[in-house]
């Protein structure tokens, strides 16, 4: 009954590992040192890649929430939970790596900057989501409530972001014109840009791999539950 690991997943895992090793080399060997921040700036490549994966997971969760309510297929609930869990982990890495970067650059571990605060609020929403799921036994109702809550969360997060943006921001604007003003911003040379995009691609692969693993895990644990019920009979 249990299937062995699909070939595609194995290949994807190998690709992710190789890409990740490449990313470490790119960041520490290929990318030049930033003039002001030196080695501290190196964390930027993984910081932004983690944030990117967190955003992917956030979008995937909202989309699968909508799809669940439309289709009523528990498959989408599984995908939604997987997306939330992955996003939760990657956003916490983003926040921690951001703090490590902020300490030497801004002289503080934490500021109430829009992106930082929104990321923290998003984490709270995910934790609330997991607590909500924990409190409901019936799978079908749990799926409905979870889907509704991800949609509410997905709508409120942009509003949270815009309302905090009305306060002054000191987060470095890496892209766009606002850059030179804020502390810790820097001009990107082509090798830096290349390293950044390489990291984004690498982490996208890691995202897909983890996503696949997590969905597979969900399916397998469902099968285990069913087998348990059979044994009990």
């Amino acid at each position: 009954m249990m299937k062995t690991q699909p070939k595609g997943l194995t290949i994807l895992t190998v690709i992710s590992v190789v890409l990740f090793l490449g990313a470490i080399l790119m960041v520490f060997v290929y990318a030049p040192l930033e003039a002001v921040m030196n080695y501290v700036q190196k964390i930027f490549y993984f910081h932004i890649a983690n944030a990117w994966v967190g955003m992917l997971g956030f979008l995937a969760a909202a989309v699968s929430g909508i799809l669940y309510l439309v289709r009523k297929d528990l498959k989408w609930d599984l995908i939604e939970l997987a997306a939330v869990e992955i996003s939760l982990v990657f956003f916490s890495i983003t926040i921690v790596s951001g703090s490590i970067w902020a300490r030497p650059t801004w002289g503080t571990w934490w500021t109430w900057d829009p992106r930082l605060t929104t990321a923290a609020i998003l984490e709270m929403i995910y934790v609330a989501y997991l607590l909500l799921r924990q409190g409901i036994e019936e799978p079908e109702r749990r799926a409905r409530f979870g889907a509704v809550y991800t949609i509410i969360g997905a709508l409120s997060v942009p509003l949270t972001f815009f309302s905090i943006i009305l306060w002054q921001t000191i987060h470095p604007e890496i892209f766009g014109a606002g850059g030179s003003g804020s502390v810790g911003s820097f001009g990107m040379t082509p090798p830096m840009l290349l390293t950044m995009f390489y990291c984004l691609i690498t982490f996208s692969f890691i995202f897909v791999t983890l996503f696949w693993y997590r969905i597979r895990l969900g399916r397998l644990s469902e099968q285990v539950e069913q087998l348990k019920l059979k044994v009990m009979e």
């Binding site: 934790v127 609330a128 924990q134 409190g135 809550y149 969360g153 409120s156 509003l159």
Partner: peptide, 23 residues
């Protein structure tokens, strides 16, 4: 109306509500 249907109802509402009502 979701929280009352969960096991941890009274504790759950503020946890669910405050992060989304922040704006």
């Amino acid at each position: 109306s979701m929280a009352v249907q969960a096991r941890t109802r009274d504790a759950l509402l503020p946890i669910m509500l405050f992060p989304v009502v922040l704006p």
